[in-house]
Design a protein around this nucleic acid. Structure first.
Lengths: 140, 140
DNA sequence: CATAAGGGTTCCAGTCACTGGAAGGTCAAG
DNA sequence: CTTGACCTTCCAGTGACTGGAACCCTTATG
């Protein structure tokens, strides 16, 4: 029931991506929709499919360049799955690194927040820590 | 033993911040170092102290605007610790949200990576998932 | 037929927190 | 006097969009 060709608004609705983002993806060469006589972009089912692919890859945190690579591999029937796995594993490692960084921040900051009275008095272990550079955690 | 005034290279070394970053912090009004006759920035101990404060706050992931607020509170002896705590708690909530997002990505992606043979064959559950949108995890 | 609404188009600027680089001034040592 | 290591300013780029202006196309209505 889908028409053979769709406008940007339609693929935006179907893919869940904003129209602005879709134009941007064309700008950087991730997709190449056709053009109608009036200059409007004309998307095929295959374009919509690519956009959905991109949306899911982005949702998993892959960079645009990774997405470009993954899309190429997706379209290449002679790819080796090892290539895909390598990209995914590197990204996974980055995610793990970020999680570790954030958890370290969380650890420190939650201690400080817990130690702060949060009342009308000026004494504040959070500022004390930022000002002195050392956690007073186990200093009596 | 520290001189009364320091050059940007010296405070960079002592604070651990790149000179470029320190100039940027002056640009956006976080610090206001003096100037010598030759036009060089001339940093007091108090400037160095602020830079160290900023470096630690940034290391905890606070945005520049949060840092500006925290620095103002730090300098204000009549602050209420509740104000500091609120900023820190909001940031903590953001950190928690980011961790949750990253962990969700990690969950999905690690399953996919594990399911991918990573050999010379083209079959790849990672691409299959990105292309179809559903995890085949529990579909037999 | 004019017009208004609701699409679409392009292009430019802004986000965030830097970072790199060019072009040039200053200073101490050899 | 030159070399080299500093310092200065200013401009451009990063990633991945996002907002807005100014304009075109199509359809429906008064």
């Amino acid at each position: 029931m889908s028409p053979a060709h769709m406008t940007i608004g339609e693929v935006a609705g179907r893919s869940g991506l904003p129209a602005k983002t879709i134009r941007y993806y064309e700008d950087i060469g991730l997709i190449r929709p056709l053009r109608g006589e009036n200059g409007y972009r004309s998307f095929r089912e295959s374009d919509l499919h690519k956009l959905a692919f991109l949306g899911r890859a982005r949702a998993l945190g892959f960079s645009i360049e990774d997405c470009r690579t993954l899309l190429e591999l997706y379209e290449d029937n002679a790819r080796e799955s090892a290539q895909v796995k390598q990209v995914a594993q590197q990204h996974l490692a980055q995610i793990e690194e970020k999680i570790a960084q954030l958890q370290a921040m969380h650890e420190t900051l939650s201690h400080l927040v817990h130690a702060c009275a949060g009342d009308s008095r000026p004494d504040c272990p959070i500022l004390a820590d930022l000002g002195s550079g050392g956690s007073d955690c186990h200093t009596s």
